[in-house]
Design a protein around this nucleic acid. Structure first.
Lengths: 180, 180
DNA sequence: CAGGGTTGTGCGTTATAGCGTACAATCGTG
DNA sequence: CACGATTGTACGCTATAACGCACAACCCTG
């Protein structure tokens, strides 16, 4: 029995309990046998992809939520201003939280300023939403020019950079990182 | 053979081709046998959870990305302003796109204005990031007061509402919806 | 060209996923 | 209390996941 099998055993029990379903009811909703559901919940069996898919549909959750729970609690969280360095002011609007796989920054880059960024981990997608000014984004080996109101997405698992094209005014953009 | 099995067959081939790995190399990286990888790619087998997990780790992708690809192409997308109605101006900064499971709105609500919202689908999480003004958010059967710079998350698969607490000035907030 | 290395497929074997059924335990009702 | 309904577990059977190995086809190098 593997760790993921154990984790999923616990998760399936959670999903079922949250809906107040018996094994029989869950079997009806998902099309997976009662006996098999029991085996999975006790960690005695590692379900196939086909069975996992049935479970996701029957429980009406996305595939990733089937495995990894989303924190359903409500609550405040803090935005945060990173101390300004030579060219950039970064305010973290939505800090990275594991269950949402998302992070959002409000970035201001001074007139003529530029910032390079290392690659993020494999598969991270970045969306740049220009709020004001003239911004250029470097990705896929070239610069892309953006105006206020423009938006641009690219893979952030490669080196990339931001540059304020104006020599007079700062530029401001929202930076959304989606980790999938 | 199920639809998801066929979909995954195609996806696994994609993942492997993208890295330029042979079946033997992929077997080494994932700990899943070459013969089994071949069976999966030809849609002849539905891998168990344990095997899926090994694949995710070996290919260094999140579990959901193992099944559903993220569009890796770069490109601009349009922000959009919804015509104002009686109390609200909505600008869609990031329209919903299926592969990111995310949507972002810039909302301005006039002095004293209020808006109720129906439930979204099961499991949607909403983050409200107040940019200016005094906002109250209704969720979990009660109102939560927020100031500029405050942020609040809650489950959006329940009825919820927004209200500008000020009778003098509009309030503005960013609204991030994460569908998981 | 021949030979060695690489690649993907097919086969047979073993372990286990998935099921229907039976049943013990528990619960609720008359 | 007895009885019926419900719930979760165990069992035996069938189908298939997963593997190691052999091999045909292809590619590259001397």
């Amino acid at each position: 029995m593997s760790d993921i099998q154990q984790q999923f055993a616990h998760r399936l029990k959670e999903l079922r309990a949250a809906r107040g379903w018996s094994l029989a009811r869950a079997a009806t909703e998902t099309g997976v046998s009662k006996a098999m559901l029991g085996q999975i919940e006790r960690g005695e069996s590692s379900p196939t992809l086909t069975t996992l898919w049935r479970l996701a549909k029957g429980f009406d959750v996305g595939f990733s939520t089937l495995i990894e729970p989303v924190d359903a609690s409500s609550g405040s969280f803090q935005t945060r201003v990173t101390p300004p360095d030579s060219a950039l002011t970064v305010k973290t609007l939505l800090p990275f939280v594991a269950d949402l796989h998302t992070e959002m920054l409000d970035v201001e880059i001074e007139a003529g300023g530029m910032r390079e960024s290392d690659s993020h981990r494999q598969g991270v997608i970045e969306c740049v939403l220009v709020q004001s000014g003239e911004l250029a984004v470097y990705s896929d080996a070239r610069w892309h020019r953006l105006q206020a109101g423009d938006a641009y997405r690219f893979r952030a698992d490669q080196p990339h950079a931001y540059r304020n094209e104006s020599q007079d005014k700062p530029a401001q953009f929202l930076n959304l990182l989606v980790y999938r």
